[in-house]
Every structure is written in structure tokens, then in C-alpha cells.
Design a protein around this nucleic acid. Structure first.
Lengths: 204, 204
DNA sequence: TTACAAACATACATGGATGTATGTAAAGGG
DNA sequence: CCCTTTACATACATCCATGTATGTTTGTAA
């Protein structure tokens, strides 16, 4: 029992990894804190030292893998752009690429979509998604103000469509065990969809 | 305590309704059997009389609301069609319409996607989805054999795309509290996507 | 070197969920 | 009219997850 700062941080990471894995395979409800601690090679004491409860672990998992990416897109959206829809298309495809590689993001996505915990956890999850929606809407509003959005689509509708297809692609890819090329098929679909979303000029 | 056959069937339905509601709001893990029985106005004894356990209730819920619709599409897919993609588009839009009205289907979808239970329940859920995928693939294979499928899409890719956008639309609609017109926006998206999936002829 | 706090492990108390076993009153058939 | 079965309610036993309280050992700073 000789733990230096560095050792402590390493056990913290071990706990997070174990929790991520168990949450993903068993769900947040059936994955008990003892299973997690045993999978991490420690006892529940260590777990309660580093985190207050299950939801705290969830938040930590989110903070270390998807929060950075979310902030990246958010800041890009806040600093105006001369081609918002181009940025959106680019960012979406980029998200697919990193998602296809990063197993942490994949597990966390599974956890948040397919194993939603009880009420407090659900509220937190809803908040995370609402933020993402706001970011997207900001971009689509810019696009409309620049006259680049198809006239039969509102900014909100466009944001909904983007969220829908992205989440649909990711969850479908995970559900069928990564049995198709996510980036290839996804970008093919996204490009077509973007062409539909953009105002079509010079077709005559 | 005077229960005729009809009364028993009615309590069974009451249990199913209560379970559906609680599973939807609290998840299958936190919604305990006692909460369900109390919400149904009975005790756990009645619940254990009608069902063996939680998963049995889930199966019953599935059987009474979405199974009929699944079978409808399946039989339509098995009896060949001269325009499989047209049938697919039609069936998808029809699914959106009934889904928008039927609150039972909405709750069950929430339960199955956002509150997946433990391992046995997850296995059952995976099976249900695999069957749907097979049905779709059967249609897209027919389309390819008839030369109606875009040459840069395999039948499996097309089925994946359909599953993805449909599930994405439904879950997005539920997530943001039905705050957009599902049928209107969904059919708009599906029609555009179908045009992309179909082989494009007579464009030159 | 000593004293304090970090970083855990261990032990305990509690409540809650499940399953089962038993009780029981009415329905329904002969 | 009686007997069996249905359709539950009640009671009990068990286990498990959580939280907390306490013990223990070692870094670490003064």
C-alpha cells in the first residue's frame, strides 16, 4: 500500500477503463461497483476514494473522451465561418473518422445510447445532447442567413436531420458489429444529404 | 377477490400498460416489479401469476405492438414485388405514420433502444433487429437483381442506410420530445435518399 | 524524525429486489 | 352443491448493491 501521486492517477485510469468496459457490455445498471473495482484490480474503497458514485464515473468517462471533440466543434461553430454547411460536412466526416478509430468513444456512445441509467443520468444525457443540438443549430442559422440553406428547410429541421443521420449511422454501425465501412458509407451518405440541404443553384 | 376470465385479461393488460410506462420513464433496471404491480393496482403475486419474470413482460409488450407491424413488412417482402424499392419507400413512410400515432410503439422503441436490459434481454433485442435487417436485405437484393439499385451500392449497404436513417429519425424525434413533424420531415428525407439509392437513368 | 494526510482496504449497516411458498376467496364445471 | 382450479394476496427467505465508518500503510513536507 505505497501509492504515490502517479500510482493513484494510474489506478484512477484503471477504474475508468474497467467501468467503461463493463458499462458497455453489461449496462450501467447491472455493472456493479464491486465488479468494476475487481476488474480494475482494486477494492470498492479505492473507487469511493476517486469518485462519489456511479454517475460521477460516467461524467468522468464523458469528460475524457467525447467532451474534447464536442468542444472542438463548438468553438469552430462559434467563430463564424463563410461556409457553415461546408464546415458541418467536414466536421461530420471528421467525427466519423475519429469515431471509427477511438474505441473509447465507441464504448461511451454505446453506454449513453443503449444503456441509459436512471433518472439523474438520463437528465445529464439529455443535457449533453441538447448542447450538441444548439451547436448544430447555430451553424445552420448562419447558413440560412448567408442564403446557403435550401429554402424548404428551416435551420432547426436541418440540424435535426444531421443529428438523426449521424446518430443513426453510429448506432447502426455498432449494432451490427462494425460490419460495414463506417467512414466510406457514411461520407457517401452525408455528401448526398448535404447536396440536398444546400440551396441548389445552377441546375437549369 | 372475484375474478372472471375477462377480469383476469384486463389485469394482464393493466400490468402491461404499467410496465410499458415505467420501463419507458425509468428504464427496465430501475423499474422494479413492485412499482409495476402497484402502478397496475395489483400486487406482485398477480404479476408472477401472469408472467414469469421481467423479460417475459418485455416479450409480451413487443408481441402486442410492434410484432404485428414487423410481420406485415416481412410478408410483403417475401411475396416478390416488381418495384422493391418503391415498396420499401412506401413501407418506411407508412411506418413513420403509424409510429407518430401509436404511443405504444413509441414507448416500446424507447425501451428497446434507450433502456436495454441485461444480457438475456440484449440478446433478444439483437435478434429482433437482425430479423428486420434480413427483411430489408431481401428487398434490396431483389432490387439489385432487377437492375434498379444504384451500381455503387451493395444490397447490404442499402439496407444499412435504411435502418440507419429510420432508427435515427425515430430516436431523434423521441429524444427532442416530438418537437418536429416526424412524417413530414422524415418522408422528405426518405424520398431524397431513395432517389440516391435508385439507379439514376435519363439524367443525360 | 515526526506528524499529517493521501490512498486505499476492510468491515458493517441498511434497504431493496427477487423468488418462492403459502393462504384464500371466488369462478366454474359436473 | 361440492370440489377443483383460477387468480390473485400475503408472508418469508435470500441475496446483493450501496453507502459509510473505520482501520492501515505509506508518501511527504516541515
Amino acid at each position: 500500500m505505497r501509492k504515490t501521486k502517479k500510482d493513484a492517477e494510474q489506478t484512477r485510469i484503471a477504474i475508468l477503463d474497467a467501468a467503461e468496459s463493463l458499462f458497455c457490455t453489461q449496462g450501467t445498471a447491472t455493472a456493479t461497483l464491486e465488479k468494476i473495482s475487481r476488474a480494475a484490480g482494486v477494492t470498492r474503497g479505492a473507487l469511493y476514494w476517486h469518485f462519489t458514485d456511479k454517475l460521477d464515473i460516467l461524467r468522468a468517462l464523458h469528460a475524457r473522451s467525447v467532451a474534447p471533440q464536442e468542444n472542438l466543434i463548438r468553438t469552430a461553430a462559434e467563430s463564424g465561418h463563410d461556409d457553415p454547411l461546408g464546415l458541418l460536412e467536414q466536421a461530420s466526416i471528421e467525427m466519423l473518422k475519429t469515431f471509427e478509430k477511438d474505441e473509447h468513444q465507441q464504448r461511451l456512445f454505446t453506454i449513453m445510447t443503449a444503456h441509459r441509467p436512471d433518472e439523474e443520468g438520463a437528465a445529464w444525457f439529455a443535457e449533453v445532447n441538447a448542447n450538441m443540438f444548439k451547436t448544430l443549430t447555430r451553424l445552420t442559422v448562419q447558413a440560412r442567413d448567408l442564403g446557403m440553406l435550401s429554402p424548404d428547410l428551416t435551420p432547426e429541421e436541418t440540424a435535426v436531420m444531421m443529428m438523426s443521420t449521424m446518430n443513426g449511422l453510429l448506432s447502426e454501425w455498432l449494432r451490427c458489429n462494425r460490419s460495414f465501412a463506417l467512414v466510406q458509407l457514411g461520407s457517401k451518405l452525408l455528401r448526398k444529404q448535404m447536396a440536398f440541404i444546400r440551396v441548389q443553384r445552377a441546375t437549369a
